[in-house]
Amino acid sequence: MGTSRRWIFAVVGVVAVAAMIFRPGFPLSVSQETRHVFDLIDSLDSNSVVMISFDHEASSLPEVGPLGTAIVDHCFRKGIRIVGLALFSEGTAAGYELINRRASAAGKTYGTEWIYLGFRPQYTSAILGMGEDLGEVFSRDYEGHSLAESPLGSRIHNYRDIALVISVADGSMPTYWVEYAQARYNVKIAAALTAVMVTSYIPYLESHQLTGIVAGLRGAAEYEQLLSAPGAGSRGMDAQSAIHALIAVLIVAGNIQAWRKRRSQTGRGTNQ
């Protein structure tokens, strides 16, 4: 490993840690996309049911975790019922843990105010199947209770009983929600995404196939700002700001160095 590489790694580590310790706290304005999802959830009746699907891997938890937390908090604050599930196996435990933690903090009861369905393989058939009969896809919830005997579970038969589906994702799963749940069953879909995925989903947002997008750690920080409850998203923005600035400086420094090297080589060539 070259010396410059080692130094760069060390500087990245120091800058990230320093930003998290000293927390400069730059002001953050809320994007139109985030506000739209917030307003959408805010406009739902307190008895509405929102389905939150944890379609991500464990690796992206630091980014999608704060997004999911902010949305779950908002739903619980509004008295909205939550039906959680996962179409990625790794999202199953993470999603259950997240809703359980927030439900405990908000004093919400399992079975009546939220339930967790767990994981089903073959997302295409799971998404389509829930449009026909949710009980055929999930006869029991993640905790093993019969869905038919659960107060909230027995209320949900298919997407007609769901006000909004939110896919908390780090990949292409919201596309399948759009193609199979929105296109066929006309249910509203929103996506809480990692920042790198945003461009892929803007065409769906503009065609109104996706109802809303909240993206990346910034989206989580914006959502927390709207909730007036700073959390992991807001904390992470300082480190992200610092690292983005550092990378911009490194690009400029690298280009200046390369330019000077080229210039000196050209000068040497001309002198010879």
């Binding site: 990245v12 435990a93 690292i243 690009i251 690298g254």
Partner: peptide, 29 residues
């Protein structure tokens, strides 16, 4: 899952920041 797998996977994902910074300095010309 909570204390091994999730932190290990997140750590590997976070390493991207270090490699991106290094690549930005060395290769983004």
């Amino acid at each position: 899952f909570d204390h091994w797998q999730a932190p290990m996977q997140s750590t590997v994902f976070s390493l991207l920041a270090f490699y991106i910074a290094s690549a930005a300095y060395r290769g983004f010309r």
